[in-house]
Simulated scan of single mutants.
Amino acid sequence: MAEWIEYGYWGLFLASFLAATILPFSSEAILSLCVYSGFDISLTIVVASLGNWLGGLTGYYLGYLGKLERIEKWLRIKPDKAIKSKEFLRTKGNAFAFFAFLPFLGDLIPIGLGLLRTNPYWMALFMAAGKVCRYVVWAWLTLQALS
Rank of each mutant, 00 (worst) to 15 (best):
S16Q: 09
L62M: 13
V137M: 12
D107M: 07
F101T: 04
L14E: 00
S37Y: 11
Y135D: 05
L146T: 00
L125A: 13
R70G: 12
L33T: 00
S147T: 04
F104I: 15
A20G: 12
G8L: 13
K81Y: 12
L62I: 05
D107F: 09
A124Y: 08
F99I: 02
W10K: 08
S37M: 03
L50W: 14
P24F: 09
A97K: 09
L108E: 01
I83M: 12
G11E: 11
V35C: 07
L115Y: 11
I77C: 12
M123L: 13
E6F: 07
L18M: 14
L89D: 09
F25A: 07
F39N: 06
L108A: 15
T142V: 11
Y135F: 15
P24S: 04
C34Q: 13
A15Q: 05
E28V: 01
F25S: 11
S37E: 12
S49G: 06
F17H: 09
G51D: 10
Y9A: 02
L116H: 08
Y36G: 04
N94T: 13
T21F: 04
L125E: 00
V47G: 01
V35Y: 05
L54F: 13
E69K: 13
S26W: 05
W53P: 08
L89E: 05
T142L: 06
D107E: 09
G93S: 08
G114I: 05
A100V: 04
A2C: 02
S147G: 14
G56R: 09
L143N: 04
V47P: 03
G38P: 10
L68A: 13
L113P: 06
G93D: 05
I83D: 14
Y121W: 14
Y7I: 00
Y7D: 05
G59E: 08
L113H: 08
S16F: 02
I83P: 00
Q144C: 07
L54R: 02
A100M: 05
L65W: 07
F39Y: 14
A82K: 09
A139L: 05
P110E: 11
V132F: 10
I5L: 15
C133I: 05
I111K: 01
G130F: 02
L125D: 01
E69F: 06
L141T: 02
S42K: 11
L68N: 03
G59I: 02
F17G: 08
W138T: 06
Y61S: 10
G55L: 10
K84C: 00
C34T: 07
I109D: 02
S147M: 06
S27K: 13
T44H: 09
L50Y: 12
I77E: 14
L33V: 03
T142H: 05
W140A: 12
L12R: 02
L125T: 12
A129N: 01
A82R: 09
